[in-house]
Design a protein around this nucleic acid. Structure first.
Lengths: 130, 130
DNA sequence: CAGGATCCTCACCGATACTG
DNA sequence: CAGTATCGGTGAGGATCCTG
């Protein structure tokens, strides 16, 4: 049991969906995994500026428990763990599309500042790192 | 300023949308107003079993501030205040549709208990209460 | 590299009492 | 009826240190 049992009685579908997406970084994790297919722990951490390891692990575990993400551990040294979306995670992401669009509209409407998460090409970054 | 300023920098559209829907009862309020068109304060309170007046007012104020709900005060005695969705609230509701469907699927999948919010006929309830 | 274990803070939410 | 004001609990989230 990872921090929360869930499965609790729900008022409606939105309630059930929100329960799964609730958490400061979950939708971002969903977004990251969706756009990259597969990501290592450290990659996710770099992709989500500001997240703490604790929260990242915790959210990842809950999402795994909820059947949204798949966690694959490679028994190598140094350790390597890869995360990816399950089919349910993918469908959830699709279901979030219209909400995302609405939010985009809202950002424009109220003129809020927007933070760019994704690295430009992920290739040039590699060059910088190396 | 009602409890929160928001407008904060967002990572993406989902983030901006979640910010507006965050709050234990907001999606339910949205749902109530969507299905009834217009509701008085006490009606909303009855429609959302378990909500406290404080939270209901607070959420309503925030949603008004976010341009989701419209608040109309009738200068009569006893006081009468009606809440309804603005066009943004309506479009948000529409954007939540697919998420709601996904949540419905999930409820079925995990076999979670579901609570019926809306009164069956609102007439039989009256009988039980009386 | 990928976490586990701890401590701490704050805002979310609930309950109660009072008012125009 | 439709709120306002206040107090207090709880847990999500954050910071830091430690480990296989």
């Amino acid at each position: 049991m990872a921090t929360s049992a869930r499965q609790g009685p729900y008022f409606c579908g939105i309630d059930a969906a929100m329960d799964v997406v609730a958490g400061k970084w979950k939708s971002l994790i969903l977004w990251e995994l969706h756009h990259h297919g597969t990501r290592r722990f450290s990659e996710l951490r770099r992709g989500l500026p500001g997240v703490s390891e604790k929260m990242l692990v915790q959210h990842l575990r809950e999402m795994e428990e909820d059947g949204l993400v798949d966690r694959e551990v490679y028994p190598v040294v140094p350790p390597k763990v890869e995360y990816s979306l399950t089919e349910h995670g993918i469908s959830l992401n699709a279901a979030l599309a219209s909400l995302s669009a609405w939010g985009g509209e809202r950002i424009r409407r109220i003129g809020a500042e927007k933070i760019t998460l994704d690295e430009p090409t992920a290739v040039e970054v590699d060059v910088e790192v190396g």
